[in-house]
Computed example of a mutant assay.
Amino acid sequence: MPKILVIDDDVAIQIVLKKLLAAQGYEVIVAGNGREGTGLAAEHQPAVIICDWMMPGMDGLEVCRRIKANPLLAGIYFILLTSRNTVEDRVRGLDNGADDFLCKPIELDELTARVRAGLRLYQINQDLQAQKRMLESEFNEAAEYVRSLLPPPMTGKLKIDSRFIPSRRLGGDCFDYYWLDPDYLAIYLLDVSGHGLGAALPSISVLNLLRSQSMDGVNFYQPDSVLRVLNETFQMDHQNDKFFTIWYGVYNQVKRQLIYSSAGHPPAILLSQPTRGKPAATLLKTSSMPIGMLPDTRFVNQRCEIDPSSVLYIFSDGVYEIRQPDGNVWGLDAFASLLIKDQRSIHQFGLDYILEQIKRIQPKESLDDDLSLLRISFS
């Protein structure tokens, strides 16, 4: 049985409205003033509120503002009962959250019609909220599934730690690392254009394809070969206009050599600590278009030697393309400077230290872009 709350300081109107609406099959709750009415609204959460505008103490506009400001009550259909009938008054009422108006003296047939209309809209809103809760639950499950696919930290002589923070529940970033054989470790991080489910699905497809090593004609020890076949497989014309950037490397732990290639992706940063002098940062990047943009894109490999004291950072652009409160973008150079300057703190506190610095730069609750970050320690 739908609940209707009547808020009016006139006892005669309370009696008339309660009798009329109860005869229509509604459960009617009555309040004699605004303060009592807001308390009963929170307690009973009615479908419709009929509230007088002019009341001593808390008037109808204030009641409406408080009801609409409460997320648990905002969906209630609010009818403002008033003798005011000017356009300015209606605009004022609507601006304060009222859904409908009923002019005094009350036409009873009009009242019941407006209540029926309000109940229909209230039910539509309830159905939408239920659908929203169901979708949120499914998105949460999907987000947990994506997280379950990401690799756990790696320990031993070679240590890998990671962080994955989507700007929404789902994001287009994805990464993986695994041994191709006892001596060769494959490492990659990719970033699909866009956000949400539309970006997450392609990234999962790429992860599963690379992890299963099921692509024909690919030498997984050669990054340029991997990127070439990915580009042939994921052309954006056949992927709902989605493209992605990727950094892919293979580390030979016997020779202490890293071979890598990238497709439109930010450079990895290799930090080395010489026996004398300051730490040095080397940007590991090859020039080429993102995967999926052009079918004949050429990818190339680069090699570098890995010193035992080196640390490698691989990341998506969400790590450094951060708009600061002054409107300026933080930038790659500033991020690289942080890695060098705060090396000791990062070594002590790990990637959480970097995330804390990012939160200080952009104190908003959610990030503007997906953030993924890998830290590979070779010592």
Rank of each mutant, 00 (worst) to 15 (best):
L207H: 03
V329W: 09
E232W: 11
D95G: 15
H265Q: 14
D183V: 15
K364H: 14
Q239Y: 12
P2S: 11
R323I: 08
I7L: 09
C64V: 14
P71G: 13
I259D: 08
T86K: 05
A143Q: 06
S193W: 05
P152M: 01
E110K: 04
F315W: 09
T233G: 02
P308A: 09
E141C: 09
D368W: 11
A47L: 02
S287Y: 05
T38L: 15
D191V: 07
L258E: 07
E365H: 14
L197N: 04
V48Q: 00
R375S: 01
A117C: 07
P267W: 01
K132S: 12
D176F: 00
S83E: 09
S372W: 01
I361T: 14
T282D: 00
L312Y: 13
T155W: 04
I358F: 06
A281Y: 04
K159A: 00
K341V: 10
L351K: 03
L111V: 06
D89C: 07
T38N: 09
G97Y: 03
S162P: 00
I49R: 07
L210C: 01
L158E: 05
D224M: 10
L207T: 00
G118F: 08
I187E: 06
L128Y: 14
V11C: 06
P279E: 00
G97H: 14
V300I: 15
D241W: 10
R360Y: 07
I160L: 02
R114Q: 02
Y177G: 01
A336V: 15
A41H: 01
S137T: 15
A22D: 13
P223S: 11
G217Y: 10
N85I: 04
Y260A: 08
P182Y: 00
G172V: 02
I49Q: 00
N301G: 12
I358G: 04
A142I: 11
V229G: 09
S288D: 10
C174W: 01
F335R: 11
H265W: 01
P56V: 04
G34L: 06
D296H: 14
Q123Y: 09
L150T: 01
L17G: 06
Q235G: 06
Y313K: 13
K157C: 07
N125H: 12
E136K: 13
A42M: 08
S262N: 08
A143F: 08
T38H: 07
T82I: 10
L135T: 10
D317M: 05
L283K: 10
S288T: 13
L312H: 12
G25F: 03
E136Q: 14
S261W: 12
A23M: 06
K18N: 06
K278Q: 15
I165L: 13
N85W: 10
F349N: 05
F78Q: 09
L170P: 12
A69G: 15
T245Y: 10
L367E: 07
E107M: 12
D173Y: 02
K364L: 13
L80I: 04
I340Q: 04
K364F: 05
Y353F: 03
I13S: 15
I15C: 08
N301R: 12
I13H: 11
V87N: 03
P223T: 08
Q362L: 02
R228K: 15
A47E: 09
G156N: 13
T112L: 11
H347K: 10
Q324R: 15
A186E: 10
Y77P: 06
S203R: 02
P295W: 05
L73P: 12
Y178T: 06
P223Y: 11
